[in-house]
Every structure is written in structure tokens, then in C-alpha cells.
Design a protein around this nucleic acid. Structure first.
Lengths: 213, 213
DNA sequence: CCCCGCCATATTGTATACAATAGCGCATGC
DNA sequence: GCATGCGCTATTGTATACAATATGGCGGGG
């Protein structure tokens, strides 16, 4: 999209995902416009986009706030991710190219490297890249759009800071299994592995988020 | 949303879904604004919403057109519907109230009534209502939003005009089975039935759309 | 004859002014 | 003291003017 609109989108999104503004914070158009150095028009467009990604919530009276995810919201999100990413893995299994598998191996090596550190951002970046490659190999634009709106939620990022290295190791092993399934071109195996991966991540999240707030 | 924006959305959506403008038709903001009797601002918002529903397609240059669905697009849409509606049915099975089941029975009676006619619109309206109740019973707002953007595509509506009464009868029987599964509170049965229902509908669509255009 | 680049213009993007409306506090009456 | 209704104010919705940009045709060159 166009310059000002994209700028406002990126800036507001960053403010939300980086935790600059906590959930429930009101987002006034004029204030955001001043912050981004643009007029209200592109800010309004950005807010609509962010609302579609569940990062912004609007009241009946059309006021905007930083979205506040309940435990139920998170559970729903993981349930949908488990289904959709599982489907993506199944599709990818019969479509993925050797080059893409190479990228997966490289990204999973990066995940492995992060196992020796406590660098959560590094792990998350490699993990995100891995899932993005799988999604791309699934070759289903609407599926990609749906999942795009689901992942990368601030709640997940916040609690990820509490993951231990054990989480990194588990993810690495599951990713490796997925790569095996891809090499075998086994859709069912790939799907099961991915769905299990997401479900386990959900329970890791629950275990770690218990004492949040 | 607000008045002018909603009006523009409803009017443009109608123009697309009713087939007033065929796929590929350019949608100029000023022209639509004049047609709806509002300014370009609410028209722009309406176009963004319709784009999210895959009813409008935008070029790199940001011009808008009535979306043109390829056979692959339709196949992808049905694949996603089969998964997501199957999931919705599974969730609904353990959550649905007796009142909602009553509504399903009433709507399926309406489907049955349409079996004796060639009134496709009547069948489609009852069918749409039936699926909406299931989705509501699934109690998953994000799932509802995803499916909302997927169903009610003009291509489907167009080819539905060619469905024979056999299609109506099949749908009625499958809906009846789904109600049975709900009464038994059997999530797996409900999911299988719904997924099968959508997949069969897909093949009915393919069979009927072969000679289109 | 075809291809490429430039320019006119159609179309969208942004800013700003104004209108409508929702939220909120205060005063008033019970 | 509390509820309720009114009016002010903050905030969003809409219209319009202007800026930026893509598009398509036309002319020149290969």
C-alpha cells in the first residue's frame, strides 16, 4: 500500500507488538496521526487493518483500543492454528521443492543454534521463518492470509520470554521430524507432526502464562 | 459501522453478488460514490472490506476490480471450508443448545420444502441459515469471521442456479444426519458429516460448472 | 514494423474542515 | 445519598480539495 498508510500501520503495529502500549490502551486517531506524522486518513486505514489482525479491538461506539486477549482467545487461536497449519503442512508435503527444504534445514539449524543461548528473539525469528516457508510451500493464498492474521500475537511474544531452552530443543526436534516427513512426501505424517507441534506449543504457553500479570 | 460506509458496502456488495457487474469489471471510487450518493471516503472503506472478503481484487497500482475466481480459487475455497466448517460442527456438537437444534430442524424443513420446487434462491437462503446456526453454536468468533469471508461467493451462486432438485435432496439428508450427530453430541460424527457435505457440494459444483462461460 | 520512453490524464492517496455522535460529568430532584 | 437526565466535550464519520502516481496513447527511434 501507499506510503503514509504503510508507515502508520508499521508504527502502530510496532507499538502494540513490542508492548509499548499495553492491552486496553485507547488508540485515538488524532494522537496516532501526530505520532506518525501523517493525517488521520491513513491512520484510520491502518487501524482497520490491525483490527482484522486482532491487534486492535473496537467498541460499539467505534473507539479503538489495543486488543486484550483472554485465555479463551488464546486457546481459540491455537486451535485454529493447529488445524490450519496442519493443513498447510499436508499441502506442502506434496508441493515443496528441494530448495525450500534446504531453507527449512538452514532455519532449523538457526533454531538449534539458539538452543545454546537464552536469546528468545533469535529463536522466535528463526521459528517464524520456518513456519513461513511451510506456508509458502502450501501454495494457498487464502490460507496464508488467515494464518497471517493469527500468528504473531503480542501475548505469545510476551510469554515466549519465559520459555526455557527446553522449549527451543523440543521445537527443533519437531521441525526436524517435519522435514523428514517432507522428504518422504508423506502428507499425513507432515500434518500430524505440525498439528502436534502447535498443540504442544499451546500447552507450553499455558504452563508458562499461569503466573502472568 | 456508520451509515454511509454501510450503505456503500451493501450497495457494492449487492452489485457484485447479484452479478450486476461481471468479474473483471473495474470499480472506480468516484463512480461508486456517485452511485451510492456518498463521498469517496466511505466507498474506499467499503472496497477494503470487500477485498478482505475476496469479492474485490486490487492490482499493484491499487485499482479495484470485481474479483475473478479461477477453478483453482474455487477448489481452494472449498478445501478451506471443508476443514473449517468441519471444525465448527465438531465444536458445535458439544455446545449446541436444544433451541438451536430446533432452529436447524426448522431450516432443514425449509430445505425439504424447496425440494419440490426449482426455487434455487429459497434453497440457498435456507441452506445459508442452517450453516449460520452451526457456526454460531461453534462459539468461535475468529472461526466465524474466517468462514464469513469464504462463503457466499458469486461463482457459487451462479452455478447453483444449475443445481437440480437432486442437490437439494442430498443436502437435506446430510443436514438431517448432522442434526442426528448433534443430538448424540458426537463431535467426530458431526465433523465427518459436515466435511463430507462440503466436499460433496464441491464435486456437485465442479460437475455443474464444467460448461460455464 | 515494432519497441521504447515520454507526456497527458484518469485514478487513487492524503490532508483538512466540518458534521454527527457517543461518552462523561455535573447538577438537580427525589 | 443516589439515580437520572441534560448539555458539554472529546472522538469518530464524511465531504471535499489537493497531491501523488499509475496508465495508456502517441511520437520518435531502431
Amino acid at each position: 500500500m501507499s506510503k503514509a498508510s504503510d508507515l502508520a500501520y508499521a508504527r502502530i503495529r510496532q507499538g502494540i507488538t513490542a508492548g509499548e502500549w499495553s492491552p486496553g490502551t485507547p488508540l485515538r486517531e488524532e494522537e496516532l496521526a501526530a505520532l506518525c506524522g501523517v493525517s488521520r486518513t491513513p491512520v484510520r486505514e491502518a487501524l482497520r487493518r490491525l483490527e482484522a489482525e486482532y491487534l486492535v479491538r473496537r467498541t460499539e461506539g467505534a473507539r479503538s483500543f489495543v486488543a486484550d486477549w483472554s485465555a479463551d482467545d488464546v486457546a481459540e487461536m491455537f486451535a485454529l492454528r493447529a488445524i490450519l497449519e496442519g493443513h498447510a503442512a499436508a499441502r506442502a508435503a506434496t508441493r515443496i521443492t528441494p530448495e525450500a527444504i534446504g531453507k527449512l534445514q538452514a532455519l532449523n539449524a538457526e533454531v538449534h543454534a539458539s538452543c545454546g543461548t537464552d536469546d528468545t528473539d533469535r529463536f522466535l525469528a528463526a521459528n517464524r521463518g520456518f513456519h513461513a516457508i511451510v506456508l509458502e510451500a502450501a501454495a494457498s493464498p487464502r490460507l496464508a492470509q488467515m494464518l497471517g492474521a493469527l500468528v504473531e500475537q503480542p501475548v505469545v511474544r510476551r510469554t515466549a520470554q519465559r520459555y526455557g531452552r527446553g522449549e527451543f530443543v523440543r521445537s527443533h526436534a519437531e521441525h526436524a521430524a517435519l522435514i523428514e516427513a517432507f522428504l518422504a512426501r508423506d502428507a499425513q505424517w507432515a500434518q500430524s507432526t505440525m498439528t502436534g507441534h502447535i498443540r504442544r506449543a499451546f500447552h507450553a504457553f499455558v504452563a508458562v502464562s499461569g503466573s502472568e500479570d
